[in-house]
Design a protein around this nucleic acid. Sequence first.
RNA 1: GCCCUGGUAGUAUAGUCCGGUCUAGUAUAGGCGGCUGUCGCCCGCCCGACCCGGGUUCAAAUCCCGGCCAGGGCGCCA
Length: 439
Amino acid sequence: MKLDSIGDWRRTHYSAEVRPELDGQEVTLFGWVQEIRDLGGIRFIILQDREGTVQITVPRKKVCSEVLSKAEALQKRYSIGVKGIVKKTEITPRGVEVIPKEVKVFSTASPQLPIDIIGKVPAKLEVRLDARPLDLCREENIAVFKIQHTAVEVIRDFLFERGFIEVHTPRIIASATEGGAALFPVDYFERKAFLAQSPQLYKEQLVISLERVFEVGPFFRAEESHTRRHLSEFVSIDIEQAFAKAEDVMQLLEQLMQHTCKVVNEKCRRELALLNYKLEVPETPFKRLTYDMVLEDLRKEGVEIPWGEDIPTPAFRTLGKIHPYFYFITDWPTQSKAFYIKPKDDNPELCEGFDFMWRWIELASGGTRIASKELLIKRLKEKGLNPESFKYHLQAFDYGMPPHAGWAIGLERLTMMLTGRKNIREATLYPRDKFRLTP
RNA sequence: GCCCUGGUAGUAUAGUCCGGUCUAGUAUAGGCGGCUGUCGCCCGCCCGACCCGGGUUCAAAUCCCGGCCAGGGCGCCA
């Protein structure tokens, strides 16, 4: 079929902005055909755009033949433009409809779509992810990513207001010696390099110059993890603050979480309703459980964990039932945390690291960092790491490393919390895991 | 990497236990036709599928073995 060009048409309103008050006014709408209900003498076309939907009503005998033939040719997902008159009406749920005066078809679509975009017949996640560009057109998914966007916007504003500077650290790094998580190797000209798993060392180095920094960006972990809360590429929101300790950044984090829930609740009312999800705004301060208290809680539930061990997933699930919302876990055994977490001055068996939990899911982790070079080297050795491999990082500790603390929060996990999604892949536009590299 | 469960039209499912009745049912989508107030529109007709390979058997969607893929769980996750 012959396609139209946009010409001098420009959008005057999004679908959601077409309200009964505009009765009688001409609007230009752009979007996609979401649904067509043809009753013979009258045809209802649901136009969808980023902000929602609006009904285009085509009464056969009342529109000109050109509009009629265009309207008859439309099919699902055609990209269209409609110039028409807003009509206030009692008959539609939204209280408005648009009677077209002119219709443009910008693009057609395959008649047999791989998934049902209305959601009458739900598709499996696998099928949805294979058809992700189309899947993302579903209103439910638009809602998820608008909420994610709102959260990122809120977090950035919050941190800017508190004097944090947004930074960008390298994604390509030279050494695999940070320990722990497996790294993805890459060819870097003739050398071997790796994709960064965290900005940890860089953001610590930056506190000696920029003092308060944050970064929002992707990181990579080549783990075998195959769960609904792990990805091999994820977005981390990382902060690091000079002249601070764990409690300072924990307060920052709980205020930030409360504020994020509050703003998302206000600004994303439509999206939350669409997802059929109620987001509670939590009270601060959040519970602070010590590692010992957690072991005790679990013991009462019949789960024994030897002191010093990390807490296994099933135990976290139990814990999430006892503490059903946000809470911190503090006073971890030093041996269970990363080498850069500061041991307590009065009891070096314990450290100033913390986990920030939402039910049974770890949303963030952080802590006071070690500022002393000697201690850091000692901890590296205890962890079986070679200080020589860290010489470029360690130099920062020769130039006046202040006391500092920070945390990192997983954006996709945060999005799961904010949207009620149960699989992290739904909170990621194009998820990457061990088995999925496309689309 | 390990354990459990599963793989049937574009999509979602029934059938699998207990082989034959399956020419594989249903819904939805798609095609064609009809319908002037639908909003999961409705009505009629049509199209369309047993993951791959091997085995058992007179006979396999169904039982067995291997593979691939998916979901869930575990481990791993500074």
